[in-house]
């Protein structure tokens, strides 16, 4: 159980949209959805906390490709 918690704690949620933009702030993501800022509602993905933004970009792009968006 402790290992599971540790694994979860090492992950960081990333909120992203269909156009590939992403942020870390949940409140901001909700707010952007409220005003339809980015053309879709945000999704959530978990990545390691220390993952560099460039890698997050790639991961998000790959995720969207996989989802056929």
């Amino acid at each position: 159980m402790s290992n599971e918690v540790q694994t979860t704690e090492n992950l960081k949620p990333v909120y992203y949209w269909l156009d590939g933009y992403w942020i870390y702030d949940k409140e901001e993501a909700d707010l952007m959805d409220e005003i339809n800022a980015f053309g879709s509602l945000h999704g959530t993905a978990l990545f390691p906390q220390d993952m560099p933004p460039e890698q997050v970009n790639k991961e998000i792009a790959a995720l969207l490709t996989e989802q056929g968006a």
């Binding site: 269909l18 952007m32 005003i35 800022a37 980015f38 053309g39 879709s40 968006a69």
Partner: peptide
């Protein structure tokens, strides 16, 4: 449905109706 999703994704990329674009 799959098609609407793709259509919406394309629309999102175009940013035709969303506020930020």
């Amino acid at each position: 449905a799959n098609e609407p999703v793709k259509a919406q994704a394309a629309e999102a990329r175009d940013g035709a109706d969303s506020l930020y674009p």
